[in-house]
Design a protein around this nucleic acid. Structure first.
Lengths: 184, 184
DNA sequence: GTCCGCATGTAAGGCGTTACATGATTAA
DNA sequence: TTAATCATGTAACGCCTTACATGCGGAC
């Protein structure tokens, strides 16, 4: 009944941020506006409705807080259920579809893994990711070898860019595994 | 009045495809479903409304066509106005915002440039792209150097991935310039 | 004669976008 | 006192998603 996968990219980004520390809507807008975190819209028309959605879902809880000044502000913190949903979402295994359609989501999931799932699960995620990317790159190469002679020059170059991006991500994943293991 | 920039990513993808050769909605769905072209949804609920939108805008024109069999089908071809809109859209210069928020669009724009804008404009596009990416990478590095000690391990690695992806795209763009120039 | 592929569509719902709106506090 | 920043919101609109619906033609 809980529908743990119903986490849109924006909801995931917000929930992951709030999980690190309680934040107001305005704080979240600042993070999106001033850091390279994802490339989410910092518009109030996106943030505030999203906050109310995940609050209605019971994943965060907003409380009137005062900050340093007497200004009206609502500080959101995750609930036990929200942390549960986040953990289950991050613990999902990497599918072929994830690699083809949701690479951004995968990176976001990875970025929040510290403290939420263990190092072991993180490494497993990276290993699966590299494997799935390899498989997808093989598919792309297969298509590309058949089509590259009929493709216009720019189409061919654009496709090469796509393939190289995937290859780079696989190399990055394997390097990340090494770095994480060196830290332990 | 023509609003030449009002091209959503999907509209651009469809218009660019039809520009190469007249296609039916079903053809377009097959392209999206079976080739690595962008990663667009091939669902009828996306394609057919989009086709009617760009037809209402006067960019394509649908005609009853017979194909090989007697099946009912509607073949869409670009209008002069549609080719104009596409050309102006592809000829736009690359902005910082494009690089930060719309890299996918930029790649799609590039993929359609053969035969629509000249080789010279294509090379200029790539040169501007590389320059804008360099500037953005400098920004990212600046942020990263200040934040990397406070970032959790996964956050740091995810950010490195983002920066490396941009760097790879800049290298790709410069390589593409060379290849295009060697062809001439 | 039944099933699969061709071919086009609609309906409800969700969510992000842009633009607008409101008010308090602080620095100049 | 005026502007900028803090802080939260709403309304209209567009567009994508999922799911459902329909019908013909060919193959087995």
């Amino acid at each position: 009944m809980t529908r743990q996968d119903d986490l849109s990219t924006l909801s995931l980004a917000i929930l992951g941020l709030i999980r690190q520390q309680p934040l107001t809507g305005y704080d979240i807008r600042k993070v999106f506006a001033t850091t390279p975190m994802g490339h989410f819209s910092s518009s109030p028309g996106a943030i505030y409705p999203a906050l109310r959605r995940i609050e209605r879902a019971g994943w965060v809880r907003g409380r009137a807080g005062q900050g340093k000044t007497g200004r009206r502000r609502i500080v959101y913190a995750t609930t036990a259920r929200g942390r549960n949903v986040l953990e289950r979402h991050l613990a999902q295994s990497v599918t072929h579809d994830d690699v083809v359609w949701r690479m951004d989501d995968l990176m976001l999931r990875f970025a929040f893994m510290d403290q939420v799932v263990g190092r072991e699960a993180t490494v497993r995620f990276l290993r699966d990711l590299a494997t799935e990317i390899d498989a997808h790159v093989a598919d792309l190469h297969h298509y590309f070898d058949g089509a590259k002679d009929t493709l216009p020059a720019c189409g061919r170059l654009a496709m090469e860019n796509g393939i190289e991006t995937y290859e780079m991500n696989a190399r990055w994943a394997r390097r990340a595994i090494e770095e994480l293991q060196r830290e332990s």
